[in-house]
Design a protein around this nucleic acid. Structure first.
Length: 213
DNA sequence: AACCAGGACGTGA
DNA sequence: TCACGTCATGGT
């Protein structure tokens, strides 16, 4: 496979979109805000997540201690706009209970995966963006974009894809952060399910471009 | 008015 | 292991 392109594509995307400076944080509690946001954004548009986060802030609930002992039905109403609110409220509560008295250095990937409702992508998002650990985040956009480009086979597992990116990039937390953010930006604006290939910054590199009007 | 969004889990084959 | 149904709101 032509994995050596991975770094070139990063430069192209960075050139086109500019630095994204992810993860967006508006409170003075980045760990909680990023972790909660990562859980809330599962298969959900970010605009809906923002509403849920605003509700949490208004109720002073960007707080592990408070969420760990909140009444579940109350939390459900507060995060309702983010969708899947029953499952997500359980996950937020379990996450809060398990991490509130924990030193952040002890939070591992396996630990996060032991929390029901946190899978690989959410765990890696928390590790990378909330804890500054070098884990490359793989999401649906990553699979779609790089399989269309012709770089990744469909059917590769999460861990295999992650390994390919980490092997072909400098082990730089900032590059991991930016690259994933840029992938999301490309996925939202061009490489959608119905792609807009005409103005795509990766048009020249892509084997797909069937809608290249 | 169907389709989609910064997934994860339980089930059955 | 893996394909498939389920969970849910809000924007286009």
């Amino acid at each position: 496979m032509e994995e050596s392109k991975i770094l070139d594509l990063y430069r192209t995307l960075l050139d086109f979109f500019g630095y994204q400076n992810w993860w967006p944080v508006y409170s003075d509690n980045p760990f909680v805000e990023i972790s909660f946001g990562a859980i809330l954004t599962q298969n959900t548009s970010w605009s809906n997540v923002e509403k849920a986060l605003r509700n949490l802030v208004e109720n002073d609930l960007l707080d592990l201690e408070k969420v760990s002992c909140i009444q579940e039905e109350k939390l459900q109403e507060i995060i309702r706009p983010a969708g899947f609110y029953k499952r997500k409220s359980k996950t937020l509560i379990e996450f809060s209970r398990k991490t509130k008295d924990m030193k952040k250095e002890k939070v591992t990937r396996d630990f996060l995966l032991s929390i029901k409702g946190i899978g690989k992508e959410t765990a890696d998002s928390i590790l990378l963006y909330a804890l500054n650990r070098p884990y490359f985040v793989v999401d649906a956009y990553t699979r779609r974009i790089f399989s269309r480009l012709g770089i990744l086979d469909k059917g590769l597992s999460y861990d295999e894809i992650q390994k390919i990116f980490e092997k072909n990039l400098p082990e730089s937390i900032n590059i991991y952060k930016e690259y994933h953010a840029l992938i999301v930006e490309l996925g939202k604006n061009f490489c959608k399910k119905k792609p807009l290939c005409r103005d795509c910054p990766l048009f020249a590199n892509c084997k797909f471009r069937i809608y290249n009007v």
